[in-house]
Design a protein around this nucleic acid. Structure first.
Lengths: 346, 346
DNA sequence: AATTGGCACTCAGAAGGATCGAGTGCCAAG
DNA sequence: CTTGGCACTCGATCCTTCTGAGTGCCAATT
């Protein structure tokens, strides 16, 4: 059984190891932390921690290093978030002031986070699946091309160029526009997509020329709506990895790969379980299934009327969790406030 | 003076060094290449090449390594492009078949190039500055928000959400739309942008309510048009850098930085001088001003009615120029063909 | 039962030294 | 101009030795 003091020793080991990047010995612990006991006593505690696989010795008779499990216990039970400095708080509000739109805001957020922490920053877009379609526009550019535009109440606009169905003139477009609006305007992205699927499946028998055109265009709209439902991610700070190669058993390749892939990271971000404060962490081998067994990802939920998503950081297992979690949380909170305000103003 | 055989020796050194990643000695040259002379003779040639600073010895009495200048001579005078394999040709046509739109095509191109060469691939968007605006649409979403949409004859569509000027109703919007169309429809992006600037500068005296609204919206359109004129870049293959750290004097940081920056690379790509075949290369220290003194960038122009731009590769100075140049050229040619076809079909 | 000082032991890493060999520069002869 | 010969250089490799931080264990102390 690990005692209370034992846990404090674990905390000390994690802190010192993150600081110094060197295995921590019993003597250096009593020097740096006021435990009021001798090195030999600490050694006994360390032996217990080692039995529990919370720490390990890289080789016989060397200092100890936290295991992934050790970091997990540290994050779950021992870490107190380190409050941001005044300068950092100031940086957040100036950096995120007056965003032009959602894209701009999130792009800035991700750069801010990577600057604040020196880690790779990840920002998930809010999911638009539950957004409602407010407008569908059809613009006939010429005989061959037309433009389909979809707008949601969350302010997302998407447009797509497609072929003008054969023989459709301006008047027809007006009719089609009305039909499309009747079909999906005011509905959620999800239900709109379903109604389009239903339409395409129905009445394969006799269709008028305009019905055909409607179905062709609805198909395009459907594809676009499906894209709304996909999660997206913005990232920054990949360059910071180069400085820290040895932190990842010598190869940052899997991380760069994941950054380029996006999909992996999106899944990982979505699957992490958050605590009651909206914070989550996935440490080292817990990410092995994603090829990121040498990395840790921490995240904080942010939350706005337009949807819920996460901001996160990816870095070495041996990262400064208290600071990074605090930074992610602070940014997430600020983001939440900005998005809510923006929503109220509307 | 460097003799003809001297240049052949340089070629051999570049080839072998790129192959083996080890300094090349006189003996290994006579072994691997049929020069018909002895090692001592090669040594004399090498001494001359060293005088010309085309090769250098990492330390006294070690094999030689090409200098940046040596690579330059190699690329300009000695390299014969290595034709692609049948498999590679096949890969190009299957991988690029049936693109959905320009974005899709270029995204695929960049992935293709990185796969083909194992280097970081860079694809420049064609410049839209000389494109013509065919449509300007104004969609009033509600009392507060409206949508500005711009379409060019190159098929590029861009949309932007902005505030509805106070008290502008549907009828006003129709008027504004007509005014905007009169202002820029049918004009080039460049001249449209200029006319908007002129409008904004003019008649600061008495303006009607609608004039004010027009100017507000024109400002947004102007910003958007200016964005058309900015070049853009897509990239892929950053992960491949991790494997090759030592090729860049141990730090890939500047490269990752450049990839994240984009702007630097765009400038570099635009400034490179192409030869008569549309190929260009910028080698090692030639990129020092961009912080990329350890890297080489090669590029091939591609060319379509919608504009002219480049596809490129970034890698270590010690890269396989003949293969990479050939790959870039092949892809660029294919791209040119696809874009032309697409244009004719329209 | 927990804590402590003492002590023998371990082992990675630094430091020093010897050796090896690929490769060079130079020269005199062909 | 080319070539074989030769002395020389110097990074890389392999050994050995040394050092010291750190451990595990034990008997004594509180």
């Amino acid at each position: 059984m690990v005692t209370e003091r034992g846990l404090q020793v674990l905390r000390a080991i994690v802190q010192d190891y993150v600081d110094t990047h060197e295995p921590v010995g019993s003597k250096s612990i009593v020097e740096r932390h006021a435990f009021g006991v001798s090195a030999a006593t600490i050694r006994n505690d360390m032996a217990l921690l080692e039995d529990e696989e919370l720490i390990a010795a890289p080789h016989t008779s060397s200092g100890r290093v936290p295991t992934d499990k050790g970091y997990r216990v540290f994050v779950d039970h021992l870490a107190e978030l380190r409050p941001l400095s005044a300068a950092q708080r100031a940086a957040i509000s100036t950096f995120l002031a007056d965003p032009a739109d959602l894209d701009d805001l999130l792009a800035r957020t991700v750069r801010l986070l990577t600057q604040l922490t020196g880690q790779v920053a990840l920002v998930q877009y809010p999911s638009f699946a539950s957004a409602n379609v407010t407008h569908v526009e059809l613009v006939r550019l010429d005989e061959f091309r037309m433009l389909v535009i979809i707008v949601t109440d969350t302010g997302r606009v998407s447009q797509r160029l497609t072929a003008t169905p054969r023989g459709v003139d301006e008047e027809d477009v007006a009719v089609l526009r009305a039909q499309l609006a009747a079909l999906i305007a005011g509905r959620s992205v999800r239900s709109g997509s379903e109604r389009i699927d239903a339409l395409r499946a129905s009445a394969p028998g006799e269709r008028s020329r305009l019905d055909e055109a409607l179905i062709t265009i609805a198909a395009v709209v459907g594809e676009e709506l499906d894209e709304f439902r996909q999660d997206r991610l913005v990232m920054a700070g990949a360059a910071t990895l180069a400085r820290r190669e040895q932190d990842f058993r010598g190869s940052i390749h899997p991380l760069l790969e994941a950054i380029e892939e996006q999909v992996t990271l999106l899944r990982l971000m979505s699957e992490m379980a958050a605590d009651d404060k909206g914070l989550s962490a996935s440490i080292g081998r817990e990410n092995a299934a994603f090829g990121l067994g040498e990395a840790s990802i921490i995240a904080s939920d942010y939350d706005a009327t337009i949807g819920r998503a996460r901001v996160g950081l990816m870095g070495p297992v041996r990262m400064d969790y208290p600071s990074n979690l605090a930074a992610a949380r602070a940014v997430a909170r600020y983001l939440t406030r900005l998005l809510d305000e923006d929503d109220n103003r509307r």
